[in-house]
Design a protein around this nucleic acid. Structure first.
Lengths: 355, 355
DNA sequence: TATTTTTCTGCAATCGATTGCATATTGAAA
DNA sequence: TTTCAATATGCAATCGATTGCAGAAAAATA
């Protein structure tokens, strides 16, 4: 082991024949310190390559300036972006991030929460895992007096700060767009209904159908078509129905939509003329498939920034913080080739607008 | 503020009329404790919802079971995957991760390093930023007695543990493959040469040309073509040369390769027959472009796991750790449509093999 | 010059858990 | 019954930085 003894404020104090108190005050620029001694302390600290022991400091001060983040998957595009957004805002305020990954497992999520509580983080940011079946662990966070912020996938009953997307509205708009493009038999690939986001997306779908007085066909609603493979499988089934759909809204993800597209290509079904496809998330690849895939952008990096800023606002205005705030970010429908089948004109106008 | 006072071992001790020492021993199952009292302690701890204060524990024990990770961009696919890999391994050993992002900025990287030192992490894992101009801060980590592991982009002169890809070999194989497919005028999009990985990739390129006795044409080597846009711009220039290349190896990234492909498509240059394209990183989208893009898989998640395991091995065998170990992971050339222009036979064989 | 205020520094407690040493208790072996 | 080892618990110091209080020194005011 090459773990050497670190330089402490006592070492500096000894060199200067003062006490640790003075050194501490000099370094943190707190209280009265003679300017000359302060400069001396700083000089010696630099010479000895002193590094403050944050553990000791945090223990004493009772705050860690650390935010814990728990996401299902670190390397899923949406979450990676949210984290990047959080990092961007917290870095500026000298806060640290501890990142945990629940792997979509409830048990692991509980362990993550406990770890973060033990670490005395000042705030826990979480997007719950898909198989969460209760939220005692989150209640526990609140009971420990730790600020809790839920985002995207949230336990709605729990009164906490929340940063969410307006999934219902976005889905509503997407399905309306499909209908306006002349699609009449629209299928839905839906996600696990215990997650709020998928319930909301379904509800947006239903709302749109209702608006245009289209009857809901239960055969068109496929559960748990998360992945590309599941999306592909669902598509095969849907397209072999006697009365096959003419559009598929993959509300689960763009990966799912990609599965749909691949099956359509394999079966020589033309997209968008014979089949419309809409995904969700605006993954990078949706732009480069042929045709490119219509999807919904969630502004994930901004969401991360919003989360961090919500926390800092809350800290500054501790008085108003009795009211649990919910920030809703409006996602944007990105219309692309996979759903445009009306009028060349429209297309031109659209592409001009996008400049 | 709703920050309440937390339950400590003293609270438990008081309830049971024992001292904190006993409680501590009971909770950590250390030293002699009567089994009956131990059970009592555990019971009361659960009742009071006690959570160990890791700060205090770490301060006393002088270790944090925490690994700090510094990457240029958290939300870049490769890094997100490496982090996910590290998380996977460290989670099993009850270690925490603190994630920092250098944003490719040297100054921010230094700040990140200092934060992690202050946090008393047991180990720092880093992939240096593109504009690093010296490595004093890394030397500092070593001086502080903290284990340092560099990965992917490394300061080669610094004697530390390293986990790298064999970039040279991979590039060599990629270019050989291009040559074997009959391409003769191969251009290189290269990255900043202060980073080892890009130097190595260039060197692999040169080695392959040499092997086949192809003269290096300096006009074919384009600097800093990182992004899709830069890749596209470089391609336009290259293709307008009087003696334009017939293949482009985008050694910087798949994004760059994508830029190449888009320009080729725009100019109605046929890929792969008129122009071969090879990228680097095996981003998800390379599989779904048309044609799909030949690229190099870096096994990023495995790399993350290797990093974590390297650390744990090192901890266990402190004796052998004098020798700085370098783990090299062999990347794999993924041959796809953008470079296959010889014999249908070959293709068939390949697609059978891949099953 | 005397008095008050401001500045500077030290003392000692504190944050919460851990651990070496000492003492007490129990049980087993002689 | 005596002796010794094993077990159980307490005492007090420790990790390193912070901070309220107190006293001393310097500066400002009367």
């Amino acid at each position: 082991m090459n773990r050497k003894k670190r330089v402490t404020i006592y070492d500096i104090a000894q060199k200067l024949n003062v006490t640790a108190s003075t050194v501490s005050r000099a370094l943190s620029n707190n209280g009265y310190v003679n300017e000359t001694t302060r400069q001396l302390v700083l000089k010696i600290a630099a010479e000895l390559n002193y590094k403050r022991n944050t553990l000791a400091s945090n223990l004493r001060k009772g705050e860690t300036k650390t935010i814990g983040v728990i996401v299902p998957r670190i390397n899923q595009n949406f979450f990676a972006n949210v984290i990047a957004g959080i990092e961007d805002s917290t870095y500026q305020k000298d806060y640290n991030l501890i990142i945990c990954q629940s792997d979509e497992l409830h048990e692991k999520e509980i362990k993550c929460v406990n770890t973060l509580i033990n670490q005395h983080v000042d705030c826990i940011v979480i997007s719950v895992s898909a198989d969460s079946y209760n939220y005692d662990h989150l209640q526990n966070v609140i009971d420990q007096g730790i600020q809790l912020i839920q985002f995207d996938r949230v336990a709605e009953d729990l009164e906490t700060l929340k940063v969410i997307n307006d999934n219902e509205q976005a889905s509503f708009e997407a399905v309306c767009h499909l209908i306006e493009q002349g699609y009449k038999k629209i299928a839905l690939l839906e996600g696990p209904q215990n997650l709020n986001i998928f319930r909301q997306r379904k509800s947006g779908y239903l709302k749109a159908l209702k608006k245009f007085k289209i009857k809901v066909n239960n055969a068109y609603v496929v559960e748990n078509a998360w992945t590309k493979e599941l999306g592909a499988a669902a598509t095969k089934k849907l397209l072999s129905l006697p009365d096959a759909p003419d559009a598929i809204f993959a509300s689960t993800s763009d990966f799912s939509a990609l599965g749909v597209l691949e099956v359509a290509n394999d079966l020589h079904i033309k997209v968008p003329s014979q089949l419309g496809i809409c995904g969700y998330s605006n993954e990078a690849f949706t732009e480069i498939t042929s045709p490119s895939i219509t999807t919904i952008d969630q502004f994930s990096v901004d969401m991360g920034k919003a989360i961090a800023n919500l926390y800092f606002d809350e800290m500054e205005n501790a008085d108003t913080s009795a009211i649990p705030k919910i920030i809703s970010i409006k996602p944007e429908l990105i219309v692309r080739g996979s759903t445009i089948r009306k009028g060349e004109q429209n297309q031109e106008i659209k592409s001009q607008e996008s400049r």
